[in-house]
């Protein structure tokens, strides 16, 4: 049972239409986007997404010339109600896990906090030991 989730990351120039072009390419391959975020730096951005078929998305975008990479992230399940994030954030804080970045989405069943950490396996063990429910890759679809 793996709780690491393959996130796809794409390098994008900071100019109009880049996101649309990427989304268009994914649609063409019938790939669904579950969650995504854009990290913006001076002059460029990094688009990060959880998609229905990461391998297919990777090969399609690479073929189109994009700089693409996979990153292992963890999906932390949260109660989709006030205080849901607070509970999780407290536990993460107590375990001493250092979050590089995070973004969230609110799904049909629950809300999910997507986190990128240094030591993925260690973080998974620590979170589970503290009773946190993690999202399994298979639950994405």
């Amino acid at each position: 049972m793996s709780y690491t989730i393959k996130q796809i990351s794409i390098f994008a120039e900071n100019r109009p239409g880049r996101l649309a072009a990427i989304a268009d390419a994914l649609e063409e391959e019938k790939i669904n986007i579950y969650a995504f975020s854009i990290a913006e730096a001076s002059g460029f951005g990094i688009i990060r997404a959880l998609v229905s078929d990461p391998a297919k998305a990777h090969s399609k975008l690479t073929q189109l010339g994009y700089a693409v990479s996979f990153t292992d992230v963890i999906g932390v399940k949260m109660r989709d109600e006030p205080g849901g994030l607070k509970d999780i954030a407290r536990i993460v804080g107590e375990t001493g896990i250092n979050i590089e970045y995070a973004y969230a989405y609110s799904g049909k069943k629950e809300a999910v906090l997507v986190v990128r950490v240094d030591q993925v396996e260690d973080a998974i063990r620590a979170l589970q030991a503290n009773g946190v429910h993690l999202l399994h890759e298979s639950e994405l679809a």
Binding site: F11, G43, A67, T71
Partner: peptide, 18 residues
Amino acid sequence: ELKPTAFSDKVNDMMSIK
């Protein structure tokens, strides 16, 4: 142009290339 193999998901890594 960034070389595809040099791409990193981390903003810091990309900033340091720049």
